[in-house]
Structure formats: structure tokens, C-alpha cells
């Protein structure tokens, strides 16, 4: 068995493709370019392939991780050229490597994620720097998270899961928040809760659909064994 990971980006209309649909999309792309994925054993065999973390509908991304297993070794060019040609417009392949790690899957290893949150230029004033500073200075940030089972809103403190927020200005005068959050099975925070609490805290009159979110990268522990090709 050969274990690989590829890092890909998502830009444009393809950002409206959900996590589950992305799985089907990659499965088909592998089929089309003739890469035989390894299948699980059992009554209902499924290909061994999965994303490190689901990405919300509507988010762009610059470095998502997909791990997969094949029966035969796969060359870098097969991935960078042929697989890419079989993916819809908007998906780019950033990097490709083999997984040396024996113990953990990429999904289990991810520790944090960095997001780029673009606020509409016209609605942000000069105080934004101060707002970020004060927002982070709070000892406790209360957000409401919908419970999966009961569907009820539950109060949670998200402060400890926010590692860092910095501001970035672009040439087009956009204001971007660079948000570094806990991510993964050990501790996880949805950037949606940060956006929600931040808008409220800063009393910003911005609708959610005016904000663009891009997940810049998923971060693995430094000693996690990937050999990038």
C-alpha cells in the first residue's frame, strides 16, 4: 500500500461544493485519470481517501489536505498534471507528498488552521486595529454553538481556542483578519463563531454574506512525517 497526501486550493465557484460533494468529486477524478485507489474490506467497500478537515460551503482555501491510499505507487506528474486536468476549474494542486507516519492519519494529526476573513472595505473604520486588540483582550468570549443532537444553542467560551488574530491590508484596500484557531480532534473552533462574536463586539454593521472566508492552511505538528515531493 502507498499512502499519499496532496494539498489543494479552492477558488471561485467551486467553493460552493460541499465537503461530501468534494469527496465524490475527487473519487471520480481519480477514476477518470486511472489511479486505482485502495478499497476498504468488508460488505460495502469504499475507497481509502479522505480530507484532513471538512471545509464549510462557501469558503475558499489555499492548502486543504487530502490523504489517500493506492495499490500501486503514483508519480508526482500523474497527480500534478493528470489528476489536475480531471478536476473542475477552481481546484489547484499545491503540493504532493507521501506519508511516512505510521501511527496517525493526517485527519487525526491536524492541530490548527489559519483563516483569512475579508471584511467589506466600505464598512470598516480606522478603529479596526483597536477593535481586534480589545476583542482579544477579553478574558472570556461567549459564543452560542448549536448542539448536533438536541439542536439547542449552548453557551461556549471560545477565547482559549483563538491562537492569534492579525490584520492585513491589501493593495485593493481590503481589510483582512488573519485568524489562527485550534483545529482537529483534540480542540476545534469554527471560524464562524469568531466572525459572529467579532462583529458583535466591534458593533460592525456587516451581513454575513458580505464576508469572504478563505482557509489559508491546515497546520500539522512539526514532527509529522510527510515527505513532500
Amino acid at each position: 500500500m502507498c499512502k499519499y497526501v496532496l494539498s489543494f486550493s479552492k477558488k471561485g465557484y467551486i467553493k460552493y461544493t460541499s465537503h461530501l460533494d468534494m469527496q465524490r468529486l475527487f473519487k471520480r477524478a481519480f477514476r477518470r485519470c486511472g489511479i486505482d485507489l485502495a478499497y476498504s474490506q468488508g460488505f460495502n467497500p469504499h475507497p481509502k481517501m479522505g480530507f484532513a478537515q471538512p471545509l464549510s460551503l462557501g469558503y475558499e482555501a489555499r492548502g486543504e489536505l487530502l490523504e489517500f491510499e493506492t495499490k500501486e505507487p503514483v508519480s508526482k506528474s500523474k497527480i500534478m498534471d493528470e489528476l489536475l486536468a480531471n478536476l473542475p476549474e477552481g481546484i489547484g494542486i499545491v503540493n504532493f507528498g507521501s506519508i511516512l507516519e505510521k501511527k496517525k492519519t493526517v485527519a487525526a494529526a491536524v492541530i490548527s488552521a489559519e483563516y483569512e476573513v475579508t471584511l467589506p472595505f466600505s464598512r470598516v473604520d480606522d478603529n479596526i486595529e483597536k477593535t481586534v486588540e480589545n476583542y482579544l483582550r477579553q478574558a472570556k468570549i461567549t459564543a452560542f454553538k448549536r448542539q448536533k443532537k438536541s439542536k439547542e444553542l449552548k453557551e461556549v467560551d471560545i477565547r482559549d481556542k483563538i491562537q492569534k488574530i492579525t490584520l492585513k491590508y491589501t493593495e485593493e484596500n481590503d481589510v483582512k483578519l488573519m485568524v489562527l484557531l485550534d483545529c482537529g480532534s483534540r480542540s476545534n473552533l469554527s471560524v464562524e463563531l469568531v466572525i459572529e462574536t467579532f462583529l458583535e463586539f466591534g458593533k460592525l454593521d456587516v451581513e454575513r454574506h458580505e464576508i469572504e472566508v478563505c482557509r489559508d492552511k491546515l497546520i500539522l505538528p512539526v514532527d509529522y512525517g510527510i515527505k513532500w515531493m
Partner: peptide, 10 residues
Amino acid sequence: KPARYTGNEI
């Protein structure tokens, strides 16, 4: 389901 309106399929 915004992908109903985006096209861009294979």
C-alpha cells in the same frame, strides 16, 4: 445549495 446555479461541472 448554491452549486445549483454555478455550472462549472466536469
